[in-house]
Design a protein around this nucleic acid. Structure first.
Length: 557
RNA sequence: GCCCCAAUAGCUCAGCGGAUAGAGCAACUGCCUUCUAAGCAGUGGGCCGGAGGUUCGAGUCCUCCUUGGGGCGCCA
C-alpha cells in the first residue's frame, strides 16, 4: 500500500486546528470532518493546498489569514512536505520536500507493479457487472464503451483496495432469445437453399447469416428434419454457444478477462426464482392484475408498478433481475454491486432501487453507472446502431481497424455521462498523432534507454543527485498515481487515469529533452546511475497507469 | 407532458464550491552529428448556452428557459 499525502495532510491539519484551539490561539468551533485538500492549478503555488481557512472564517470570526497563521506553526512535521506558506486570501500551500520526492524513486522500484495500490476499499467485496449484452449476435461497437468502462473501473477498484469480481450476465432466457433462435433457424434454412423468411422483428445482421452458414456446413440438413420446436432448441443452443464464444474472444482482444459468466436461465432451473417470488409475496410486494403478477414499486419509491410475470405465465426480465440481485447480495455477499449500463436503460434504475428496498437492502449498495451512448461516424455520416435492423459495426471490425489500445483510450478519456462521437476515419487517420501513441511512446523510449544501458549497474545510484527541474517535475507527476487511483475509485471515474497518464508522459518527454540519461562523459557515472533509476521507476508508473486502463505498454515502437 | 444526461477555444473534451478556466486536434514559428522527432519549445484563439438565485467565493450548487441525446411497453 502506498500512503497518501493528502490524507496525512488532512490529519495534520485537523490536529493543528484542535491544538490551536486548546492553546487559545483560535476560538472554539467544530473542526470540519473532511478538510479539503486540493492540487493548486499552478505549480508555483505548491503541490498541495487547503482552502479550509476561508471556510472557517465565519465560524471562527477571524480573517482567513489569521486562522492560517495560527495553524501553520502547529502542523506536525511530515516527511513529504518541505516548505509551507500562507497566501492570500487564506490558502495554506504545501510544497513537496525534495528529499521525499527523490526517495519515492526507491519506493517505486521496491513496490514495482504494486505501486499505486491504496487502502481505500479496505477489502470490501465489490462486483462489477458489465457488457452483459443480449446474446443475440456479435458484440457491436455500442458495447465497447461499456466494456472499457467496466473493466477499467474494476481495475481501479482493485488497485484502490477492493476485492473485485468481474461478471458477465448472459441473458440467455426471454423473448429476445426466442427471436434470435427463430432468425438463426431461418438463416440456416436459407443457407441450405430453402426459401424461408427472417421474422420481421428478428435480427437482420450479417452475423446471424455467418453463424447459420457455419452450422449448415457442420451439421447439414439435420435441423430441417426435426419438429420446429426441437430444431429451435437444438440450433439455439449452438447459436448461443457461438455468440458467447465470440464475445469471449472479442473481449479478450481488448484484454478483458471475466471472473464469472452468469446464466440468467440458471435462475429458473435451480429454484432461485421460485424462492425470491415466495419471499416477495410474503413481504406483500406482489399483486395480481389482468392475469399478470405485478411488483408494487410505487410503494418503494418507484414511478410505477412493474410486471414481473406476464399474463401468459412467462417471467419478464425484471423478474430475472430481482432473482439475480438477490443472488448477488444475499447469496454471494457482495458489499456493493456496480452495474454498467447504457443510458438507454436509465428507466430501469428506479425499479431496481425499489427492488433493493423490497429485499431489505440499502439501495445505495447497488450502483448503476449509466454511460451516454456513443455515436459512431464513418465518412462524416452518423452510423445508426441497431442489432435488429442489422445496421451495425461489430466490435471486432473496430478492433481490427483502429486497434484495441486506441479504442480503449478514446472511449475511456471521456467521462461516462458525456455523449461522444467516435469517428472511425478520424481515429485511423490520426493514429500517428494520437494521445495513445504519445503515452506509449514515453514507455517505449524508456525501454530503449534501459536497453542501451543494459550493461550499466545502477542499483547503487544516488537519488539525491536528481535535482534538475525537469527531474523534479517528473517526480511530482509520478507520485500522483496513488491519489489518482483513489480519486478515480472514489468518483468511479476511470477517465481520470487517461488524463493522468497523458500528464505523466508529457513530464517524461520534457525530461527526455532536458536531461541526457546515459552519458558518456567521464565523471557522469553517478548521475547516469541516478537517472537510470529515475526512468526505471517512471517506466513502472507509466506501465501501471496504462495497465489500469487495459492498454499495453510497448517496449519498442 | 413528465424524468435522466449534456451544453466550456474553430473541432473533440478535462476541470473533487476556491487562486490568472486547461489539454489534444486544427492554424502559425522555431528545434534532429549525441539515449526513438510517434518528440520538444513557443504564438494566436474563451460574455464557460441564456436569465435569475445561494455563497466570503460559482464553469462547478439551486430554479426557470433554449438546444442536443436518451427514457417513460405484460421488449430488453
Amino acid at each position: 500500500m502506498t500512503p497518501l499525502v493528502d490524507e496525512m495532510l488532512r490529519r495534520a491539519l485537523g490536529h493543528a486546528l484542535r491544538q490551536a484551539q486548546k492553546e487559545g490561539a483560535l476560538p472554539d468551533f467544530e473542526v470540519p470532518q473532511e478538510i479539503p485538500i486540493e492540487r493548486p492549478k499552478q505549480e508555483d503555488l505548491g503541490d498541495w493546498a487547503t482552502p479550509v481557512c476561508m471556510q472557517l472564517a465565519r465560524l471562527a470570526r477571524l480573517a482567513p489569514i489569521k486562522i492560517a497563521e495560527a495553524i501553520v506553526p502547529r502542523l506536525d512535521h511530515l516527511e513529504a512536505i518541505g516548505e509551507v506558506n500562507v497566501a492570500p486570501p487564506g490558502y495554506i500551500n504545501f510544497y513537496a520536500a525534495k528529499g521525499w520526492l527523490q526517495k519515492q524513486v526507491e519506493e517505486i522500484l521496491r513496490q514495482g507493479a504494486a505501486y499505486g495500490r491504496v487502502d481505500f476499499g479496505q477489502g470490501r467485496k465489490v462486483q462489477v457487472e458489465f457488457v452483459s449484452a443480449n446474446p443475440t449476435g456479435y458484440l457491436h461497437m455500442g458495447s465497447a464503451r461499456n466494456a472499457v468502462l467496466g473493466d477499467a473501473l474494476a481495475s481501479v477498484l482493485e488497485a484502490a483496495g477492493y476485492d473485485v469480481q468481474r461478471e458477465y450476465y448472459i441473458n440467455d432466457s426471454g423473448s429476445r432469445m426466442r427471436l434470435f433462435y427463430e432468425t438463426l433457424l431461418a438463416r440456416y434454412a436459407q443457407a441450405l437453399g430453402e426459401d424461408w423468411l427472417v421474422p420481421e422483428e428478428g435480427y437482420h445482421g450479417a452475423d446471424v447469416v455467418e453463424m447459420a452458414q457455419a452450422i449448415a456446413a457442420e451439421y447439414g440438413r439435420r435441423f430441417l428434419e426435426m419438429p420446429r420446436e426441437e430444431a429451435l432448441e437444438a440450433i439455439g443452443a449452438l447459436g448461443l454457444e457461438k455468440v458467447i464464444q465470440r464475445a469471449r474472444e472479442d473481449l479478450a482482444l481488448m484484454g478483458i478477462q471475466y471472473d464469472g459468466w452468469f446464466s440468467e436461465k440458471s435462475l429458473y432451473t435451480n429454484g432461485q426464482f421460485e424462492r425470491i417470488m415466495t419471499l416477495l409475496r410474503e413481504g406483500g410486494h406482489l399483486y395480481e392484475h389482468d392475469g399478470a403478477v405485478w411488483f408494487r414499486a410505487t410503494a418503494l419509491g418507484g414511478p410505477k408498478d412493474e410486471v414481473v410475470v406476464r399474463s401468459d405465465g412467462s417471467p419478464g426480465y425484471f423478474a430475472s433481475d430481482i432473482a439475480y440481485h438477490y443472488n448477488k447480495f444475499i447469496e454471494r455477499g457482495f458489499d456493493t454491486v456496480i452495474n454498467v449500463w447504457g443510458a438507454d436503460h436509465q428507466g430501469h434504475v428506479p425499479r431496481m432501487k425499489a427492488m433493493m428496498r423490497a429485499l431489505g437492502l440499502d439501495p445505495n449498495r447497488l450502483i448503476i453507472i449509466l454511460y451516454q451512448l456513443v455515436t459512431l461516424k464513418r465518412g462524416g455520416e452518423i452510423v445508426r446502431l441497431s442489432k435488429r435492423t442489422g445496421d451495425t459495426i461489430t466490435l471486432r471490425e473496430v478492433l481490427e481497424e483502429v486497434g484495441a489500445d486506441a479504442v480503449r483510450y478514446f472511449l475511456l478519456s471521456r467521462s461516462a455521462d458525456s455523449q461522444m462521437e467516435f469517428d472511425l476515419d478520424l481515429a485511423k487517420e490520426q493514429s500517428e498523432a494520437n494521445p495513445v501513441y504519445y503515452i506509449q511512446y514515453a514507455h517505449a523510449r524508456i525501454a530503449s534507454i534501459l536497453r542501451l544501458a543494459r550493461d550499466i549497474s545502477y542499483q547503487g545510484g544516488d537519488v539525491s543527485l536528481l535535482n534538475h527541474p525537469a527531474e523534479l517535475a517528473l517526480l511530482r507527476r509520478m507520485v500522483r498515481l496513488p491519489e489518482t487511483v483513489k480519486m478515480a475509485a472514489a468518483q468511479l471515474a476511470p477517465h481520470l487515469l487517461a488524463y493522468y497518464a497523458y500528464d505523466l508522459a508529457s513530464a517524461f518527454h520534457a525530461f527526455y529533452r532536458d536531461c541526457r540519461v546515459v552519458s558518456t562523459e567521464p565523471g557522469d557515472e553517478a548521475l547516469t546511475a541516478a537517472r537510470l533509476k529515475l526512468v526505471a521507476a517512471c517506466k513502472i508508473v507509466l506501465a501501471r497507469a496504462l495497465g489500469l486502463m487495459g492498454m499495453t505498454a510497448p517496449e519498442a515502437m
